[in-house]
């Protein structure tokens, strides 16, 4: 890192770099700032020309009005249940699969692993056509099972955790065996505590992806009581027409929880993304 600090020599270079980065940051943040400020404006302020950047008096009642027009509390609850439920189940499935591939030598394990990796190339959009039919046949339309179950086996997470599991020295397993420790206990007492940061990363990435999910919930929820936030927001936007200040309040409700998680757990998110991403 010493060489890095030496790279910037002149004060002018620093001024230029900071100016460019601040300009860039303004462009990146602007939609978020616009959203927050507009959510606190009156309708007249939100559509004024020339624009009024700041509201005269912060209209917190916009949030209340939006929630009276559409059941955002229900959407919020549904989103929390499906994201948390999905994340917990995904963690179990991922941990078991990664454990299976690292701990046991079973017939066909290499072939199965390769085939699983190959499924990552299949676009998810291709699968929804039949999955919709399958989920209907199970009677899972408008249910949490329908929202959660099809997405609890994520090959990328299994691949990622397997790599962490493989780094745990074999001697630990042998020592545990001598002490009379079962495989099940070994998984919970040694493997998981030693890879906890990778598991936390997977949990956060999965939670965020699940929170923001759109196409699948759009297909399988018809009942307003089962809608999640992303779907509720698009319906609300269509129904509320030009009420931009209310729509921005609703958009803020979706974005704030994830933004808070991001603020505190950024380190895990970025480390996970640089290892292969959340969406790929």
């Amino acid at each position: 890192m010493e060489s890095n600090t030496k790279k910037v020599t002149s004060v002018w270079a620093k001024v230029l770099i900071y100016t460019a980065l601040i300009l860039g940051a303004v462009v990146m943040l602007f939609p978020f700032i616009f959203m927050l400020l507009t959510s606190l404006k009156t309708y007249a302020e939100s559509i004024s020309v020339p624009p009024k950047i700041f509201p005269e008096v912060a209209q917190f009642k916009n949030y209340k009005t939006a929630m009276e027009m559409a059941p955002f509390d229900v959407y919020f609850k549904n989103t929390v249940i499906s994201s948390v439920g999905n994340t917990i189940l995904t963690l179990f499935v991922t941990i078991f699969a990664a454990f299976s591939f690292t701990r046991y030598k079973f017939y066909g394990s290499n072939v199965i692993f390769t085939l699983l990796l190959a499924t990552m190339m299949v676009p998810g959009e291709m699968l929804i056509i039949q999955n919709y039919q399958t989920v209907s046949a199970f009677g899972w339309i408008d249910t949490f099972q329908g929202l959660i179950i099809p997405y609890i086996a994520n090959v990328f997470y299994i691949f990622l955790l397997r790599q962490y599991f493989m780094q745990i020295p074999e001697q630990l397993y042998k020592a545990a065996k001598i002490d009379g420790c079962s495989d099940w206990k070994y998984l919970w007492k040694i493997m998981i505590p030693n890879t906890i940061s990778a598991i936390v990363t997977i949990a956060i990435l999965n939670f965020i992806a699940s929170w923001n999910a759109f196409l699948w919930p759009l297909l399988i929820t018809n009942n307003d009581k089962m809608r999640v936030l992303t779907i509720g927001l698009t319906h609300f936007t269509n129904e509320s027409g030009s009420q931009v200040h209310l729509q921005m309040a609703a958009a803020t409700i979706i974005i704030i929880p994830v933004a808070i998680i991001y603020l505190f757990l950024q380190k895990y998110i970025i480390s996970g993304v640089t290892r292969g991403g959340l969406k790929g």
Partner: peptide, 17 residues
């Protein structure tokens, strides 16, 4: 931290913005 924010936020919500 600022530049990465759009990656974690809902495309639907920010698209409406």
């Amino acid at each position: 931290a600022i530049y990465f924010l759009p990656y974690v936020t809902s495309v639907i919500a920010i698209g409406i913005v």
